[in-house]
Design a protein around this nucleic acid. Sequence first.
DNA 1: CTAACTACCTGAACGC
DNA 2: TGCGTTCAGGTAGTTA
Length: 257
Amino acid sequence: MSAQPQARFHAVEKAAGRRVLDLRRRGKYLLAPIDGGLELIVHLGMTGSFRFRGGADGWQPDPYVRATFTLSQPADPGSDADPDLHNSELDFRDVRRFGTLAVVATGDYSALATLAALGPEPLSDDFDPLRFHTALAASRMAVKPYLLTQRPVAGVGNIYADEALWRARINPHARRVGRERSATLWTAIREVLAEAIEREGTTFRDYRMVNGESGRNADFLVAYGQAGRACPRCGTALRKVVLGGRGTTYCPWCQRR
DNA sequence: CTAACTACCTGAACGC
DNA sequence: TGCGTTCAGGTAGTTA
């Protein structure tokens, strides 16, 4: 692989020539164990995407490509790798350059504090409603910024936090969330994420699938980006505030404290 | 230790 | 048209 030296790129040159052993996801992080006892970690940040060159969408690199992975034929004949990918070039495009690439010792996430403290996978059995309530009860933060820390549950960002809190009728400023409401939020998070995944993501501008297609979830957003519109439940105008430095839209009636 | 605030980047949309 | 301001899907670093 080749990459520009960047502040948010850590030891990426160590990935060159390595074989990718696996490719997994935890929250918003992509994790690829590579040989040599190493692990390649990718975070797309706000505007990152992966694109294959020369595919059906005709993608060609532009000035926002920060790294390129050149994939080679698996040396192992028994590999399940796709031989069509031989010599393919996979670009990491990232307009705002908030994305992260890092190579670390396998499982050593000490250089990435958020990953090291990452909460359970929201759609797995590890995401337990009682433990979720315990985490919310232990935090002194407002519930929405706390969700964005990735500690109570992995993978909930600004869009899905607003959507889930609206669905659960919880005020984003709330610092105490009872057991019943925690369970409602637990369900809402799983529903909101599962529906967005079913629609292949939320595209405003930069987010793309690897084949260049947009996700279809943006048209289904009820809260995020809908300030001033009528709440679909009660008709009250949705209100936008800044909370924890992030734009936050909610229904001042349904989500009253 | 937690929580709050700032920095990091570029581009699009908006007001004048 | 042009220019300045604000905002954007996120996390890492610093400070209290």
